[in-house]
């Protein structure tokens, strides 16, 4: 149908910007996204530099950087397949393009699966903060970490983590009175400002991945129909989605070292 011609430069690039509307719009959107993630990164910097000495944990102590490395590989590869999808379309190969989109989708899904395991591991891991040092495992500690926390009105029981050489050995559960406890929390966002920032940044990023997956999924599903109606529009939509996807990937490239390695 010729309805699409009614909005100028819907498909044809504008002489001044050299872009069609959608692409320009997407760059503007990405500018606002930079401000969004930038605000979170700035908050991270402010909170970290303001934290008293010794209170800010190191990412590599609490987080699993190996899994994150794997996720980085997934995302970078998915950016490549995204570009390839666009290239295949430019070469009129719809079938191949759909395949590339599907691989991108799958890699994004794999990323989210890894994230799911990372998150659930954190939510099931607990920390009990004490009001006064308590003898445990040969030293006096203010914090005890472990799993399988059971809380009652008077006390909290926890299976402490193993330390030292035999990490697999399980400690028997210990029970601590409420009156000795300052705080019980899992390694979720409430644990510390570091984890609060971690969950907010990766959570927001994860939402963006899911958003991207929805769009990519839709493009795969509707590819045949859109291609038949207006092939140039299909190419443009994949291009714009690709731009967005590269941005999401880029955010992760910053997130990964800042949270996991520094």
């Amino acid at each position: 149908m010729s309805d699409s011609a009614i909005i100028p430069h819907d498909v044809e690039p504008h002489p001044l910007t050299g872009m069609y509307n959608g692409k320009f719009g997407l760059w503007l959107f990405l500018a606002s996204e930079v401000m969004l993630f930038g605000a979170l990164f700035s908050s991270y910097v402010l909170l970290r530099t303001g934290a008293p000495e010794g209170t800010w944990p190191r990412g590599e102590d609490i987080l699993n950087w190996k899994l994150a490395m794997l996720n980085t590989m997934f995302l970078i590869t998915s950016s490549v397949t995204m570009v390839m999808a666009w290239a295949e379309l430019k070469m009129n190969r719809l079938g191949k393009a759909k395949q590339m989109l599907a691989i991108t989708f799958a890699l994004a899904g794999a990323f989210m699966v890894v994230k799911y395991f990372e998150y659930t591991d954190k939510f099931h891991h607990y920390q009990v903060e004490l009001l006064a040092p308590m003898a445990h495992d040969g030293h006096d500690v203010m914090k005890i970490t472990g799993h399988n926390v059971k809380e009652t009105e008077d006390s909290v029981s926890i299976e402490p983590d193993a330390h030292g050489a035999d990490k697999s050995a399980k400690h028997a559960p210990i029970t601590i009175e409420r009156s000795k406890i300052k705080r019980v929390t899992n390694f979720g966002p409430a644990h510390s400002t570091f984890l609060a920032v971690y969950f907010t940044l990766t959570g927001l990023h994860g939402l963006h991945i899911v958003g991207g997956m929805v769009v990519i999924g839709y493009l795969i599903f509707a590819a045949d129909r859109i291609w038949k109606w207006n092939p140039e529009k299909m190419v443009n939509r994949v291009e714009c989605t690709g731009l967005y996807w590269h941005f999401v990937d880029l955010v992760w490239i910053f997130l990964f070292p800042v949270l996991y390695l520094l």
Partner: peptide, 16 residues
């Protein structure tokens, strides 16, 4: 971003 952070302070117990 700040609204999300404050929401988390209220709902998820974070300390932003």
């Amino acid at each position: 971003a700040a609204a999300v952070m404050q929401l988390m302070d209220r709902v998820a117990g974070t300390s932003f």
